[in-house]
Design a protein around this nucleic acid. Structure first.
Lengths: 352, 352
DNA sequence: CTTCATTGCCAAAGCGCTTTGGATATCCGC
DNA sequence: GCGGATATCCAAAGCGCTTTGGCAATGAAG
């Protein structure tokens, strides 16, 4: 069923039918109603391709997911982010086009996407420090929003990010307040902008309290369960082991917890953990009041919704100046943190 | 840069340029080369929309991800499956269009997709028992491949699935061989076809050995960490607790392990776990030789690659009869299983 | 009873590509 | 030197939609 057929059935011109369906004022209300009913009856939906050709709008947004052996495995946060973005797109009638791309061919992919003109805008995932994609996309003139930021990039661009620095600074402060001084950072890959920022927040908090950051207590890698386990196990074997861990994701936190228990210690009593929690659907940090992990929490699904909405605004009005949005993470206290053991003992001995 | 401009630059007709680029024989080799070079030089890529309109092919595949409050949260396996499928699409020049859809509007969504004609085929995710989508898509005449199967559907259709029944039967047999008799099943949602099959495999193995399945040892829910924890914790408090757990995913296995340790027991010695392992990128079951969990393993990423390839064959040749592919899971032995405690004791006493 | 907006509708052009159905030029054997 | 392949290239139609520019008919105003 296409426009031509539908208009023949109705005994109207294609013009009128098209206008009736698209809400233009120059068709009579009676006719409009008749047209709309016929459209529903015959399951008429305009062809995206033809509509796109005629209007110059693709009504689709592209997401380019970098994937390589080097890093950025298929990150579980993508699933939630995309689910959030998908909600926004669905509400506004946009499609979402996903490209999983080997990241050494990423530049070419963006060029191709721009030339093929099958998306109206792009969400950039996983920005790195000095990420070249910002300049590339600006040059290509394709509207885009970065999920995260690209430190070191001078050009103005639109982004939506969590305040990672502040979140990790607060988390570190929280541990310091509990008396911890040996605080380990089990970070994500520090080429990634978000991980670099988290480290900065962590270090700033330590320095502000006069605690020297110890390179032996900092790791950076892909955020897997196994990585958390290995990293924590190694650090716990140090002569002066950490009494607290700051981890970059729930998954690596699970690994850290396992290492703590393997060492015969108890999480929350002997060793504390604060993790970042993206509030993923399938990996909830406990249900409700008493979370398993003390965490800096920020919903990545909500981030997806908002980033998509920002991008659609940009698509509708390309003259608009770049927009940005900084989401704050909330620090929720769970069962994984407690006073530093030394301090607990000191408190005990004071009472005696 | 479009065809018209490019052909003007070259002093050729659009026809010739189009044919040269698409490999038709009726253009001279010299001209073809000249055209190809100019295309590269000017970054020419044909507009997907226009090409699609002219050819009637969208060069895109749709993935409809059901998402609702009821069930099927944004499942982490989607990310890996889609990454695999994306590889195939990229290699063949197809785009991937994702629709996240509230599942009470799913039928409507499929109808819309068919009417909008912006995909050449669809991958169906998360089939349930008697899934109505098979009939709907068959009626719509849209090529599709189901990831999984839909028990109870009589129509022929194309699918790719893991042999879940066999995998869980083997896993159960393995535990029975180790002397376990109280074997719990921490299953996924049993409306889902894969979960129903797993249960059947589990029950069949028990019955074949004369062990009566005990409803108190079977749970079914969304496969989260928390669910695994709660379910296992409850069962371990039973008067006659299980000595082994069969879980449906790595994530719920992590929860089960936590419950075991919370109870002061040791995994692999006091209580065994066998889990299904989708071989997800960010949740590896140990690196290399000695996996954490004994598991039935099958790569969902590979499934994505294969399902996509099957669908593309179907798209190219719609007359082709439905194809299917059953992948076998391998049973890998890790640190999470050991002989049933009673039997271990019996063995010890025999030695004395 | 004209005149002139206004309302309601339509024919046709155009979006960027593929493809049909020639047209022209070249080359072959006889 | 001629008919007929053969090799190259082209003009124009068509894919399904939107949108420009008109055209009748209607009703209000003069």
């Amino acid at each position: 069923m296409n426009l031509k057929e539908l208009s023949q059935i109705l005994g109207l011109s294609q013009t009128t039918v098209s206008r009736a369906l698209n809400g233009y004022p120059e068709v009579g209300e009676a006719t409009r109603k008749r047209v709309q009913e016929a459209a529903v009856l015959h399951h008429y939906r305009p062809s995206t391709r033809a509509k796109g050709l005629a209007t110059g709008r693709a009504m689709a947004i592209g997401h380019v997911i970098p994937v390589s052996t080097r890093h950025e495995i298929v990150n579980p946060v993508f699933a939630d982010f995309i689910a959030g973005a998908g909600e926004t797109y669905a509400a506004k009638g946009y499609d979402m086009i996903l490209s999983v791309v080997d990241d050494d061919r990423e530049a070419r992919t963006y060029r191709d996407i721009a030339a093929k003109r099958n998306v109206d805008g792009i969400i950039v995932h996983g920005p790195e420090l000095n990420d070249p994609r910002v300049a590339l996309l600006t040059e290509l003139g394709l509207p885009f929003v970065v999920h995260g930021r690209a430190s070191g990039v001078a050009l103005p661009y639109s982004w939506l990010d969590v305040n990672n620095t502040r979140a990790f600074r607060r988390a570190t402060d929280f541990l310091l307040d509990l008396g911890h001084r040996r605080i380990a950072l089990v970070n994500g890959l520090e080429e990634m902008d978000f991980a670099a920022r988290r480290r900065r927040g962590y270090e700033a908090a330590l320095v502000a309290r006069g605690v020297a950051p110890d390179p032996a207590l900092m790791r950076s890698s892909e955020m897997t369960e196994n990585y958390g386990h290995v990293a924590a196990a190694e650090m716990l074997r140090l002569p002066d082991p950490p009494t607290a861990f700051l981890t970059a994701s729930m998954i690596s936190a699970l690994g850290v917890r396992r290492a703590i228990e393997d060492a015969g210690l108890k999480m929350g009593r002997d060793v504390s953990i604060v993790t970042h929690d993206d509030d993923l659907g399938y990996l909830r940090n406990g249900d409700g009041a008493d979370p398993i992990f003390t965490a800096t929490r920020s919903s990545v699904r909500e981030a997806g919704r908002l980033a998509a909405a920002m991008l659609l605004e940009l698509v509708v009005d390309p003259e608009r100046t770049p927009r940005s949005r900084l989401m704050e993470a909330t620090l929720v206290v769970g069962q994984s943190t407690g006073p530093a053991p030394q301090q607990a003992q000191a408190a005990l001995s004071q009472r005696r």
